[in-house]
Design a binder for these strands. Structure first.
Lengths: 207, 207
DNA sequence: CCACGTGTAGGACCAAAGGACAATGGCGGA
DNA sequence: TCCGCCATTGTCCTTTGGTCCTACACGTGG
């Protein structure tokens, strides 16, 4: 239904890449393999959907460093670490930074598949909520400063006349701004607007 | 300011309990030590604030089993695992289930203290949001079934007359229910009500 | 200079929300 | 049986919100 997710495999061992490629392809998954973190980073778009199976120790960027790099670029591709010589501190660091799983070679095919399913689902839902938030943000940028101000005040529950007093304007003016906010934010009800503002982090903090 | 958080230490080794007790007390932290998971579980209230430093392998319930038990009892005390003979699968399982950290003995005092500070902060904020949600839930239970129905419909953005048509009642009736909902939920604005409903998981899903 | 966006504001008018007061009917517990 | 709670509906009135159309001032960039 949605664009097909892809499983990216980054491992410096050709045998591992080949074996994983075969295994996952047999499961009906799209697979792309990369021999290094750098080569993977090059061919990466922010809208990528799927998950990443990542080796820990590689020449060049290590797996943990790639994870860090993705975080810094604001790319939330779910990561499954798969390593032969891992240690506890590495696994803990990986999990702390949001890895879906941290498996050790040799890995049970079932375990890996299960982790991949989980990762793909997680990525899908996080992509959905991220899309919603960015959608709200783009609409927010279409507001004029005054409209944003009015938005912030009305979603805290203030009446038009209260907003007017607070901003030193006529109630009529606030009504105009309010109507424009509703239209520009494509909110089809006030409740809807409140929820959008909530998602954008605009709440009753400023009271 | 808030009730002082306590660091609970559960470890079967008396030497570890003694050493940790001294170290953490010197840091100005309240410490309670327990020789087993069972003894800790007995003296546990759901409103406990602080964090738990937990050994992995113990006679009786293991650390991971205690973590599971706390999850099942809906107790969200942040956990720091501290173990001598851990392995990667254990650490990954612990982190997946929400542990704050997974440290190995011998541990650097600084690392442990840092983890504790993080855990206590996490526990504090999660307790805050949990309190807010339960507060909303208790208010929800004070609503009559009809009032809850009306609440669900108005927070999706429906007008009184639409709700009336949807429920086969007069608009006036909906107004009365709506007013009672606002009073019982202690919402001081409609925006407020929408946010409360949001926290309680009542949203526009049902459309 | 003119067009455009922005902020401002007025009047007219209608729709929606909310409060005050009253009333009816059902249903379960004291 | 009577009381209290719940749900229901009504009328009357006020406040609030929302939508037209119109209008003016101000600054930016063609």
């Amino acid at each position: 239904m949605t664009p097909a997710p892809t499983v990216f495999v980054v491992d410096d061992d050709p045998a591992v890449r080949k074996a994983l490629g075969r295994l996952l392809h047999a499961e009906g998954l799209n697979v792309e393999t990369y021999p290094s973190a750098e080569s993977f980073l090059e061919t990466l778009t922010p809208a990528t959907l799927g998950c990443l199976i990542l080796d820990l120790a590689m020449p060049g960027l290590s797996g943990l460093e790639l994870q860090q790099a993705l975080t810094e670029r604001n790319i939330s591709l779910p990561i499954i670490f798969l390593t032969g010589r891992g240690d506890i501190p590495s696994s803990v660091r990986a999990m702390k930074r949001g890895a879906v799983d941290f498996l050790t070679k040799p890995v049970e095919g079932q375990d890996l598949i299960a982790a991949i399913r989980l990762a793909i689902n997680r990525g899908r839902s996080s992509a959905q909520s991220r899309d919603k938030v960015t959608e709200v943000h783009t609409r927010l940028t279409s507001l004029t400063p005054r409209e944003r101000q009015v938005l912030c005040l009305i979603v805290t529950g203030m009446l038009n006349k209260q907003v007017a007093a607070h901003l030193g304007a006529a109630e009529k003016t606030i009504k105009v701004h309010r109507a424009r906010v509703m239209r520009k934010m494509r909110a089809d009800s006030f409740a809807d607007l409140v929820r959008m503002a909530q998602r954008a982090g605009i709440g009753p903090e400023a009271i």
